[in-house]
Write a protein that binds this DNA or RNA. Structure first.
Lengths: 202, 202
DNA sequence: TTTGAATATGAATATTGTTCATATTTTCTC
DNA sequence: GAGAAAATATGAACAATATTCATATTCAAA
């Protein structure tokens, strides 16, 4: 259950077992309370009470409250990347990759509705974080599209943003209505993929 | 310049000239400071200092800080609706409506980059506000699609979310790179519309 | 076992959103 | 225009917050 702790600015990695335990508890509590009550309605003392630590302990591992947020965002980012890679690894055509990728993304959105809070909310907390997230995602996506030979249209950068938009907003719809995996599959197979292959409008 | 003030819960409409002036100054300052520093980095006393009022004055017109936020969100919502309606009013086909609607939305996103902060940020501030915004937008969109006869595919609700996703994410791209109106037109004409008519993938 | 480094603690601080009693201005009535 | 009532303005005061820090405890390596 205890994954490798990520390192970056604003985060101080513990050097002992005790420290690791405390930091993991703080992270788990932060994630749970942010999901339940939101970032701003969750106070540091709430997090610490829930994790069973003193307030000062929090500040040993995180320089500011925003830094836990960044940490969780990075976690979700990696989780999404890993899941997508895993789910499309056996697909030969771009068509198959998109079908599996979109299904995977939407199902993830339903199972972890907090990703939108974290990723879209970053726009209000640290704009650069948000810009970096999507420009880097779009740039990988665009490169991948260019390498496959079954993509119409040359402006793969715009296509990448369109496809990201489709996934993200269908994820929203699925989240709002708590769609099941079967409903997601059905929607993607009967509506989304035909739209990507044949268009939407006459 | 001074538009009609909107009425709803959490907002107290002033009844004198003096009150209107003060409220308008508070709104303008809120919008400016939220855009520059974000909702949470802007304090009530910042807003009041900038507007030239005392802190107590703020609370005559807005019950909480979140209520100014709601007010601004409602403003943007109406602005977007009005602009879209105005821009597609002469279009006969759904194809033409989409072309003009998408162009209009993207240009608006570039000119008012704060809309994303306000609308997407609402997810972290008042989840219901966010859900209501998109479900109501999607439901009107879906109804409009059903009434036109040049839309492939029967699940107009999913199509509505896809189209909203496309507009919103292309708006993001345009905002990130500060695209000009001409660049937006070019992108929509040569990439987006062909994609909507003929699809993206082989 | 000893020692220095790592960690834990919670009271103290500065800043925040919000309230309220008091003072001023506007509007209405005569 | 005078006076009264309603609307508005004010900023000090309050509770809650994020963050700091001096002190106490625990860990790991020799």
């Amino acid at each position: 259950m205890s994954k490798k702790l990520l390192e970056f600015k604003g985060i101080n990695i513990p050097k002992t077992k005790l420290g690791q335990t405390k930091m993991e508890k703080l992270l788990a509590s932060s994630e749970e309370l942010f999901a339940k009550n939101g970032f701003y309605a969750t106070s540091i003392s709430d997090i610490c009470k829930h994790a069973g630590t003193a307030v000062g302990t929090f500040y040993i591992y995180f320089e500011t409250k925003t830094d836990v947020y960044k940490y969780l965002m990075e976690t979700y980012k990696r989780e999404i990347k890993d899941r997508l890679a895993e789910n499309i690894k056996d697909c030969k055509t771009r068509y198959d990759k998109e079908r599996e990728g979109i299904k995977c993304f939407i199902k993830y959105a339903v199972s972890e509705p907090n990703v939108y809070n974290i990723i879209w909310g970053s726009l209000s907390i640290d704009r650069q974080l948000f810009v970096d997230y999507y420009t880097s995602f779009a740039s990988s996506y665009s490169r991948a599209l260019r390498e496959d030979d079954d993509v119409f249209l040359s402006d793969t950068d715009s296509i990448a943003y369109m496809l990201m938009g489709i996934s993200n907003f269908l994820g929203l719809k699925a989240m709002f209505t708590s769609m099941t995996d079967e409903q997601v599959d059905e929607m993607v197979d009967t509506t989304v993929m035909p739209a990507l292959k044949c268009g939407i409008l006459k």
